[in-house]
Design a protein around this nucleic acid. Structure first.
Lengths: 162, 162
DNA sequence: GTTGAAAATAAACATGG
DNA sequence: CCATGTTTATTTTCAAC
């Protein structure tokens, strides 16, 4: 196994293709080819290579939480008691394994974890706090920030040339 | 224009389809049909309807930030001076408009905004703080939480039946 | 839900840098 | 030799019934 940045570097074609796919991965390869001045076959090969190399992590449809009965988004800061590795790992698994936890970050600074949570109701959030926080001895405290406006929500990333 | 929850309610077929598309929107409609016991045409019509109705917000490829030269993710809590609507709006626009700001939430509680930021270096983050925070009189203070581990990062949502 | 046409993807091949 | 473009085959999408 090679190092973690396996695979060759990305050229400007790759970046241009990624730029398009990040906005709409349903864009036909033919259209992408026209925009970046490449044949559709070349586009196809590059996309496949980037998938294999892990540059492209996945291809997802994004659903509006409001339309599927999940009107509440909550940001939670979690503080732990001990930073023992096994306890941190247990917490990570517990947070990541919960289907209502959309995102989970382990952070330095004034908190230890930041979670983005999507729930159908505030009582469901309360249940989640019991499940994940009160049910975990290693959680010292947590701060709840209720989202009033989801101003920007993508996972897209800026792609300037290196 | 109808109310914001325009469109009929989603049945369990829709939810099953969304479940699959949230994991991989490249899944052929034929395969989806096999999994949910529907003809591929029915699947096709349902997907199109959900796109038109806004249940499906978009279809995106997700890129690994590490592989495109953005190794640092930062969570920022922003506190504002005044909650005047025009000032809040200006802040929202400024945050959302910045390409390095991946996500931006307006929240209640001990902070006013939570940002998820992706940057090539910590000095780029410093530049961002100058741009967005020090350059904005209405930003009272901000807390920086540097992400050490991105444990879970999707936008996928749990789809239990209502 | 089934069928068939149009379109897209994916493989095979040949070529220039 | 690697990456491209062209051609061909396969698969998928999408509209008509």
């Amino acid at each position: 196994m090679r190092d973690s940045s396996e695979g060759g570097r990305l050229d400007s074609f790759d970046l241009a293709i990624l730029d398009i796919l990040q906005k709409d991965n349903g864009t036909p390869q033919r259209v992408i080819g026209e925009k970046v001045n490449l044949s559709s076959a070349a586009v196809h090969r590059r996309i496949r290579r980037m998938q294999e190399e892990g540059v492209i992590v996945g291809n997802y449809a994004v659903v509006d939480p409001l339309r599927v009965g999940l009107p509440f988004t909550v940001v939670v800061e979690v503080h732990v008691e001990s930073e023992r590795l096994d306890l941190l790992d247990a917490a990570k698994r517990s947070f990541a394994g919960d289907p209502q936890v959309q995102q989970c970050y382990y952070v330095t600074g004034e908190a230890d974890f930041v979670l983005i949570v999507t729930v159908p109701s505030m009582s469901a959030y309360e249940a989640l706090t019991r499940r994940l926080f009160f049910g975990n001895n290693n959680v010292k405290k947590f701060r709840t920030l209720v989202v009033m406006d989801r101003i920007k929500t993508g996972l897209a990333v800026t792609l300037d040339d290196a």
